[in-house]
Design a protein around this nucleic acid. Structure first.
Lengths: 124, 124
DNA sequence: TTTGTATTTAACCGTTTGGTTATATACATT
DNA sequence: AATGTATATAACCAAACGGTTAAATACAAA
């Protein structure tokens, strides 16, 4: 729970199936703690802790209505997380494009040899 | 390290700045363990453990070349992670759209109340 | 064969996580 | 005021995390 940076605590909050299920539920609208707890065979305090993790990651916010503390999704951090992932996914795909180009080039210049394990180049 | 499901272990692997930095470095090409360790003031075994986490999350794969174990990015799990995030981000935005529609409807029927603040959504 | 380099494994340590049960708090209803 | 309902907190626990140092392994070079 010692949150280092925002991105880390977002990913960490998402790294639990219970919490992801809670977010899934909340994506359809606000819900009380008991409502959120219903699908799980888990004690209320356990759910309460999960909610606190989500809250500290700013993935949810909570209201106050009589004895209920309705939770609602706050998806802003998801945007940062998504951006991060997309960034590296893009880089990875770019690398593959370059590899494709390289392979194509090689095929034009060389006679296809016996199936060769590609050797990792560019080392020092 | 006790990987429950794939998505969880992906997010968990991403929930650490050192590991994200390693992935960032790898997005520019393969690297040996010592090369990857260089930017960090951390012991080699620590890096080795981080690499193992990334490997078990299938975010990297490793080769064998003399005494080196070159690491390379495997971005397939990033796709699943990205898909998950995008899904809920989309739902969240849909919710906002519905809220917009609702507010508009209300505005037509009622007297406009005190200025309502609009949410940041233009980012995409 | 010895030495050096790259990397992993082992053993350990303090902190965090994810759960539990039992208790406390806050509010509504009777 | 007493009771019921919704939720949070406290205290505890085992396991996992993220790091350490020291030792083992694997291969290359001399």
């Amino acid at each position: 729970m010692l949150a280092p940076d925002r991105l880390s605590s977002t990913f960490q909050a998402l790294a639990d199936p219970t919490r992801r299920a809670i977010l899934a539920r909340l994506s359809q609208g606000e819900a009380s703690v008991t409502e959120l707890a219903a699908p799980f065979s888990m004690s209320m305090p356990a759910i309460s802790k999960h909610l606190k993790v989500l809250e500290r990651a700013s993935l949810i916010s909570r209201g106050k209505e009589a004895q209920w503390r309705p939770c609602k999704l706050e998806a802003a951090p998801l945007e940062a997380a998504s951006d991060w992932v997309e960034q590296y996914r893009a880089m990875w795909e770019a690398r593959f494009d370059r590899l494709d180009a390289y392979l194509k080039e090689v095929q034009e210049k060389e006679v296809k040899p016996t199936t060769r394990k590609r050797n990792a180049k560019g080392k020092r």
